[in-house]
Amino acid sequence: MSSLRLVPADALRIQAWANGAGTTTVIDSGPDEAHWAWRLSIADIAQDCDFSSFPGTRRHFVPLDAPLRLRFDAGRELSLLRLSVTCFDGAQAPHALLLDGPTRAFNLMLRGAAEGTLLARPLNGHMSLPLRAASRWFVHLLGGHAHVQADEQRMALTAGSNLWIDATHGGMARIEGGGELVLVQLAA
């Protein structure tokens, strides 16, 4: 059996960045808030700024609204188009340069043995997600509308919705609709 769980809007927490340069909306973390092995969040990037350093953390990162450039020590730079995913060591706190105005960015942060994958993509029609007992999916509907079905459960999503798909066995979840979404697969 699989279950669909919406993350209620009142469960989201806005936090100041550790370095004070911006704010982040924390969507969820686990196994608990204080000692997380994984964390999902959306950062508001309103100006060129330095990111906070997260030693011992692997960051998966995707700009949601506009492209940006990340400048790391030793002159290394990454130019990221909107919805293009990159990964980097959280101890490296890059300087973010806005190329087309403010943006938000989705972050998947992993520590220790935690494993996960971040995808950002358009939704046009339907797609299927494989369900395995050893993993679960998170869906953030960036824009548009969608319906998610897993086993006998079906749920409608609107822009900004956050949903967990928990699986206890194999099978498939189906997402139908139009818009853009961010998907995270976490190993359980």
Rank of each mutant, 00 (worst) to 15 (best):
L118W: 14
F54P: 07
A21E: 14
P8R: 02
P31V: 01
A74R: 12
L131V: 04
L78R: 09
T86W: 11
N107K: 02
A146H: 10
S41K: 09
L98K: 03
R58F: 07
L141C: 04
G101E: 06
L40C: 04
A9C: 02
W137R: 10
A66G: 13
L163N: 07
T158E: 15
L129G: 08
G160V: 09
V7S: 12
P67A: 03
D44Q: 15
L78W: 10
A11E: 00
V182N: 09
L97E: 15
P63D: 10
N124S: 14
G177R: 06
S84G: 03
A93T: 06
G30I: 07
R154I: 14
P31K: 12
P31G: 03
L97C: 02
L110Y: 04
A18P: 12
A134E: 15
M172H: 05
P67F: 11
H145D: 04
L163A: 11
Q153Y: 14
P122W: 08
A113H: 12
A113I: 05
R69D: 05
P130K: 06
L4V: 02
G90P: 13
V139C: 06
A134S: 15
A43D: 09
L186Q: 01
S135T: 13
R71N: 07
T57E: 07
D65Q: 10
P122I: 14
N124V: 15
L70Y: 06
R136C: 14
W137M: 05
A187I: 07
A91E: 10
A159K: 07
D10Y: 03
A105K: 11
L6M: 09
L4K: 06
S161M: 05
T86R: 03
G30H: 07
H60V: 00
E77L: 12
L12W: 04
G160D: 00
R59Y: 09
A150S: 12
W17S: 01
L110D: 10
A9M: 05
L157I: 02
R132V: 09
T25C: 09
Q92N: 06
W36A: 01
S3R: 03
S135L: 10
G20Y: 03
A105V: 08
L6I: 12
D32R: 08
E33N: 15
E115M: 03
S3Y: 05
A150M: 08
E77H: 13
G116I: 08
L183C: 10
R104N: 01
G112I: 02
L108A: 01
G170L: 06
M127V: 11
P122L: 07
W137H: 03
Q92G: 04
L64G: 14
D151F: 08
L141R: 11
E115Q: 12
T57S: 05
S41L: 05
A9V: 11
A46Q: 14
Q153M: 03
W164A: 04
S29T: 07
L119T: 14
L70T: 08
G116E: 05
L83R: 00
P102S: 04
G179C: 01
L183D: 05
G56A: 00
V85H: 13
L118T: 06
R59E: 00
D89V: 13
S128Q: 11
R5K: 09
L6K: 13
Q15S: 09
A133C: 11
H60C: 14
